[in-house]
Amino acid sequence: MGAVGRGSAMMVALVLCFMVVEMADAATYTVGGAAGWTFNTVGWPRGKRFRAGDTLVFNYNPGAHNVVAVNKAGYDSCKTARGAKVYRSGKDQIRLVRGQNYFICNFVGHCESGMKIAINAA
């Protein structure tokens, strides 16, 4: 019985080790660069390679903007679905999931003015 316990502990340690290595490989990106999350950021992701686990940092004035995680339909239409996650801190940190990740500002007219990004994380 003790050998099974040691084997299980070793398996847990191995899994934790892989998780630490994967997290160490994760990158942090400031959306929009020095300008932050603002108008015309739609092209900001171009040329960057994102991976699941990378963190996006959205810096903005919370009285003027927000960040909303949406699906493709919400991204294309600039509409926020009921139940969508809305971030309002002005210093939001959002971890990317594998596949498509879509974010908009849902203040009136902002998404339509290019305040939205679509990111494919490998």
Results as ranks from 00 to 15, higher is better:
D76A: 09
K48Y: 12
L56F: 08
G63K: 15
F58K: 01
G47M: 15
G47Q: 05
G47W: 15
K85D: 04
K72D: 08
R46C: 05
P45M: 07
L56C: 05
G43E: 13
L56N: 01
R49Q: 11
T55S: 01
V42G: 03
C78E: 10
A64K: 13
S77Y: 11
A64N: 08
G74M: 09
A35S: 14
T55N: 01
K48P: 03
G53F: 05
T38I: 11
R49F: 14
A52F: 09
T80F: 14
Y60M: 02
K48V: 03
V86H: 06
A84N: 06
G47H: 12
R46G: 01
G83I: 09
C78I: 11
A73V: 14
V86Q: 10
A84P: 09
C78L: 07
R46L: 15
K48L: 01
A73S: 09
L56K: 01
G36Q: 08
T41Q: 04
A81M: 15
G36R: 06
V67F: 10
N71Y: 06
A69M: 06
T80S: 09
R46H: 11
V86S: 03
V67E: 04
A84R: 10
D76W: 12
D54E: 02
N61Y: 08
R51F: 05
R82E: 06
T55M: 02
A73H: 13
T38N: 09
F39P: 00
Y75I: 05
A34D: 13
A64R: 14
W37K: 03
T55V: 14
G47E: 10
N66E: 11
N59V: 09
P62M: 11
K85A: 07
N59D: 03
W44T: 00
G33M: 07
Y75S: 00
K72L: 15
Y60V: 01
A35P: 05
N66P: 04
S77A: 12
V68C: 03
G53S: 06
K72G: 06
R46Y: 11
K85T: 15
Y60K: 03
T55R: 00
G63M: 12
V42Y: 14
N66L: 09
Y75C: 02
L56R: 03
F58I: 05
D76H: 06
W37R: 00
T38S: 05
G74L: 08
A52S: 15
T38F: 12
N66M: 03
K85W: 13
N59K: 15
R49E: 08
G83P: 07
H65S: 02
A52V: 10
A84T: 07
V67T: 00
A64T: 04
A73P: 04
F58D: 00
K79S: 09
R82G: 06
W37V: 00
H65Q: 00
S77R: 13
A84F: 10
A35E: 05
H65E: 01
V86F: 15
P45E: 08
A52T: 13
C78R: 08
G83A: 08
F58E: 00
P62S: 08
H65I: 11
K79L: 10
G43P: 07
G36V: 05
C78K: 08
K85Y: 13
N71H: 12
Y60D: 02
A34K: 10
G53W: 09
G53T: 03
N40F: 10
G63R: 13
D76R: 05
N61L: 11
F58M: 02
W44H: 02
R46D: 06
G47S: 12
G43Q: 13
S77L: 15
A73N: 04
K85N: 07
G43T: 14
W37L: 01
F39T: 05
